[in-house]
Design a protein around this nucleic acid. Structure first.
Lengths: 231, 231
DNA sequence: TATAAGGCTTAACAATATTTAACTGGATCC
DNA sequence: GGATCCAGTTAAATATTGTTAAGCCTTATA
């Protein structure tokens, strides 16, 4: 497959340049725009695989741009770059049909994880990729099909359950940092997201009860780990 | 897998020490160098998993060092420590092939998140980490599963108990320095943390009562050791 | 366009883990 | 021996996590 084309719209010149440089280095083909209007013009001229949109921008903000883009190309995924305290904005943005958001400041690694995740999700329809599965103990997580196969049968998962189990199952016997998990799955580490994650952990623990060799251990203040014992 | 080896090159002695101390605490194996030249020498002598490079340094700056390193080992990930808003530095770093950057001043948590993110991506080892256990006297500490197996049965442990017993059990019959233990488990040596540790020592002593051959003795003003007698 | 159903979040309360306080006994130093 | 500091123990205060259920959206369905 050729390089994925990314439309990057960011008015902060520092961050913009850094994003462009980094994404280029990682094998993408980014096009950098300084404001929403320029972004719109570039969008019309070319075909992109993913948009990275800052929200607060002069001339045309990220939401407006996203809405206009979605009108023309509904399936083009958008990753919003938001400041920390723009929660309302984020909710608004997700309504439009954006795929994800990431709160500033973020690390390049975090960004890369998001970008690859979105592209993987959206591009899989065109290529023939084997379905991703994760095995642990007596379970098989069918990630793409979003269900968990256990000793007692199959169980449909919600997407949050699915993501969380995958994160755990890809780090068997290793600590998964709380904050990292939150940023990864919920977008940012906030009080309520943390509580929400706890609720999901509780649900997942119930699902894993079917196999005594599998358990989730919490490391107070740090995170948790999926333990698969031998026997 | 064994501990990840980190090459840390930082000329500010304060920050350098803090980095080393913290990374050690978090289970990495950092090697601290005071300037680029020393960093280069260490790099040649050993094999590392990740480099943390300050940019402004005497003798040899971070860029030059990174370039030289990349020439020898292209895939060794680099994380630059830059002064705030040095956009040009950041871009220069990314051009060289840095995997990420972090602007000073940064918190240790931020740093850790970046380090783990990079290592997670680059080490992508699908192999499952074996569960760690520590034996002493009539006990087996199941560290990953967080419980202690004694002559009278199994006993669940809290994270702090778990960490403290591991520290003791990995230094049987040897002195564990108080301050070192505090930094290792609590993050720093402060009055209240010290009192907290005393509380845990007391709890652990109770657990170890089950086997008379095992005891924790204290060396006044120094620390303590886990004694396992032969009989 | 009501109605139902599912998924996620928020609230509320319970259970644990950890820290802080308070009191006590030893060790050390003079 | 008395003063002082360090450590041992217990209990109370906080903080974090576990669990359940209620509420609120969004989507599916009639």
């Amino acid at each position: 497959m050729s390089k994925a084309k990314l439309l990057v719209v960011e008015d902060d010149p520092n961050l913009g340049d850094i994003l462009q440089e980094y994404l280029e280095m990682k094998g993408y083909e980014p096009t950098l725009c300084r404001d929403g209007e320029e972004g719109w013009n570039k969008f019309k001229k070319d075909k992109y695989d993913l948009c990275l949109l800052d929200i607060m921008m002069p001339k045309k903000d990220g939401f407006t741009l996203a809405k206009e883009i979605k009108k023309v190309q509904e399936d083009l995924p958008v990753l919003f770059l938001t400041a920390k305290n723009q929660k309302d904005d984020i909710i608004e943005g997700l309504k439009i049909g954006a795929d994800d958001y990431i709160t500033k400041p973020f690390s390049m690694e975090e960004l890369l994880l998001r970008v690859t995740a979105i592209l993987r999700r959206t591009q899989k329809s065109t290529e023939i990729t084997p379905l991703k599965t994760y095995e642990f103990g007596g379970f098989v997580l069918h990630y793409d099909e979003q269900y968990l196969e256990g000793p007692l049968g199959k169980h449909k998962l919600t997407s949050k359950e699915n993501e969380l189990i995958r994160l755990l199952a890809s780090e068997i016997n290793k600590l998964v940092n709380r904050s990292h998990a939150l940023k990864q799955i919920w977008g940012d580490d906030s009080y309520f997201n943390a509580r929400s994650m706890d609720v999901y952990l509780s649900k997942i623990r119930k699902l894993l009860k079917d196999d005594p060799k599998v358990q989730i251990i919490t490391v107070h203040g740090e995170g948790f780990k999926l333990i698969v014992s031998e026997d």
